[in-house]
């Protein structure tokens, strides 16, 4: 972890064929044209079209690829439907009229075969990309991934750094250019973790662990949210993701370790109550194994917690 960043080979975006790359170019040009024509388009820079890491970058590529292919598919319909309707309008007496015509093998072939070929092509890419971008798949790198255990609560995110024995709420600080492996569970209802410029969604569910791999390419500020509605505080369940240099990350870890707050059963119990928090919280010490206790419901999840309230209050 203390190795300087320049010695590490950055996590690379996945290689793709030159044809696909060309399509990406076209897609990118078209997207930027669209972006120019629509002023106030900074909204797109909030999402994965302005990727901050290799995962979002590859997903953007996939988005452009599918979009360009599909534009080629739907373009003819968008043109043909109104043109043919207009040309063969009743008032146009010059157009041919063959009321009994209702079949042609050539046209049948044209409407069944090319779409099938396109779907086969898309399917091949889909299988490949779905494998490559499986959120469970580790990101190739020389550096060992940083482990973060994520617990979704009402209405906040708890991030535990198990190797560092620290934790933070609604703030995720990550070293840039180092892969991150997340294990997610929920301390309440089902939720969905989305960091639009970094990595796509995965659900967090009680009693289960899901996984997400990501990396940040450049130091910078990104954001994340819960995308699955879970009650009144849903819209406030957003957090900042900061990608920092390894040195800054070490500084941050050291400073957090100074904070006296301890994440133990009782602190977790208080945290898991329904609330929104105005400022991120950090815990300088984390009781070992607390994530496993949450997953295995040794600490009961949301609803059961209410039944057990008396235990803690008493």
């Amino acid at each position: 972890m203390k190795r300087p960043i320049r010695h590490a080979r950055p996590a690379t975006p996945r290689a793709h064929s030159s044809r696909a790359r060309l399509l990406t170019r076209i897609g990118a040009i078209m997207a930027s044209l669209a972006a120019l024509s629509l002023s106030g388009c900074s909204v797109l820079s909030r999402g994965f079209l302005a990727p901050g890491g290799p995962v979002a970058h590859a997903e953007r590529h996939e988005f452009f690829f599918v979009s360009v292919v599909m534009l080629l598919v739907i373009g003819p319909v968008i043109l043909l439907a109104p043109l043919i309707a207009w040309h063969y309008r009743l008032a146009n007496t010059k157009s041919a009229f063959r009321p009994q015509w209702g079949f042609s093998w050539i046209l049948e072939g044209l409407i069944w075969i090319p779409p099938t070929i396109i779907v086969i092509v898309l399917a091949v890419f889909l299988v490949q990309r779905t494998e490559q971008l499986d959120p469970y798949r580790a990101i190739p790198s020389n550096l060992p991934p940083l482990q973060v255990d994520v617990v979704s609560l009402d209405w906040k995110w708890l991030f535990i750094y198990p190797e560092l024995h620290i934790a933070s709420v609604n703030q995720l600080i990550l070293p840039a250019n180092r892969p991150v492996h997340m294990s997610l569970t929920s301390g309440t209802v089902m939720q969905s973790l989305l960091m639009p410029r970094l990595a796509g969604q995965i659900y967090a569910m009680t009693g289960m662990v899901t996984q997400l791999n990501l990396a940040i390419s450049e130091p910078g500020t990104y954001w994340g949210e819960n995308a699955q509605y879970n009650g009144d505080g849903f819209v406030k369940q957003k957090f900042q993701v900061m990608g920092v240099t390894p040195a800054d990350f070490s500084h941050w870890v050291a400073s957090v370790k100074q904070t006296p707050k301890v994440l133990d059963d009782k602190a977790y119990h208080n945290l898991s109550q329904e609330s929104t928090i105005p400022q991120p919280i950090t815990f300088g010490t984390v009781e070992p194994g607390i994530f496993a206790k949450i997953v295995h419901q040794v600490i009961p999840p949301g609803d059961a917690a209410k039944h057990e309230e008396a235990k803690y209050d008493g």
């Binding site: 999402g47 994965f48 979002a56 590859a58 997903e59 996939e62 988005f63 599918v66 979009s67 599909m70 534009l71 598919v73 739907i74 898309l122 889909l126 990309r129 779905t130 490559q132 971008l133 959120p135 969905s192 989305l194 639009p196 990595a199 796509g200 969604q201 995965i202 995308a227 699955q228």
Partner: peptide
């Protein structure tokens, strides 16, 4: 239909789902 095919592609769906 176009956005449907986009959503049917799992890697893109991860980003735009929900």
């Amino acid at each position: 239909g176009m956005s449907g095919i986009i959503l049917a592609t799992p890697p893109v769906d991860y980003m735009v789902h929900n």
